[in-house]
Structures are given as structure tokens and as C-alpha cells.
């Protein structure tokens, strides 16, 4: 089971410069754990711990087949073979 994951420029230091990597998992949390095994350090950039449990970082957007995962279960969002995952850091700031 392979899922293509698009990696943004800023995180390509973890993927030897690759724009896309492939991983597996039945949900986003499992996919991230799988990616962490082959690309150590990546998880830390995507996930932090809130109230004792993992949560997506506030300023990281993850999409499954063009859907923002925040609307489809966050880290629990289900995945299946052939799904396309895109990771994009938020473009944000403030004075």
C-alpha cells in the first residue's frame, strides 16, 4: 500500500531534496509514523503534543486528496492505497 506525500521546500532537508516521498498507513497518524522511520525528524515538524496527545501543528496544513485534514478527522483521517497527501506550511504572520 503506497501513498504519495508531497513535501514542501522547507522540509526537503529531511527527504534528501525529494519533492515527494511514499509511505503507508491506514490513517494520517500511522503514515507520519511510517515516514518518520525513513525520514527521521519529519514527525517533529508536523506534529506536537497538546494535552498529552499528538496533534497537527497549528501552522502546518495537510491535505488528503485536496481535503484539509482538519475537516476530516485530523491525525485520525483515514487513508487508502493511492491517496495523495500534500503537506504545506501555512503562509501566515502578524505584527
Amino acid at each position: 500500500m503506497a501513498i504519495e506525500v508531497r513535501i514542501p521546500t522547507i522540509l526537503r532537508t529531511y527527504t534528501d531534496g525529494e519533492k515527494a516521498v511514499s509511505g503507508e498507513g491506514s490513517n494520517l497518524s500511522a503514515l507520519i509514523a511510517d515516514l518518520e522511520a525513513s525520514h527521521p525528524g519529519l514527525k517533529e515538524r508536523l506534529v506536537d503534543v497538546k494535552d498529552g496527545k499528538d496533534d497537527l501543528r497549528r501552522f502546518v496544513n495537510v491535505y488528503i486528496n485536496d481535503e484539509d485534514v482538519r475537516f476530516i478527522g485530523g491525525l485520525g483521517a483515514e487513508l487508502k492505497d493511492g491517496d495523495q497527501v500534500v503537506v504545506l506550511p501555512a503562509v501566515a504572520g502578524g505584527c
Binding site: N61, Y63, D66, D68, R70, L88, V91, A92, G94
Partner: peptide, 12 residues
């Protein structure tokens, strides 16, 4: 007036 953020769908 003190913060900006691209909408997540627009960003994609």
C-alpha cells in the same frame, strides 16, 4: 489588523 494567514484551500 494584526495577523494574516492564507486560507488553507486557497493555499493548496
Amino acid at each position: 489588523p494584526t495577523f494574516y494567514e492564507f486560507d488553507s484551500t486557497d493555499l493548496l
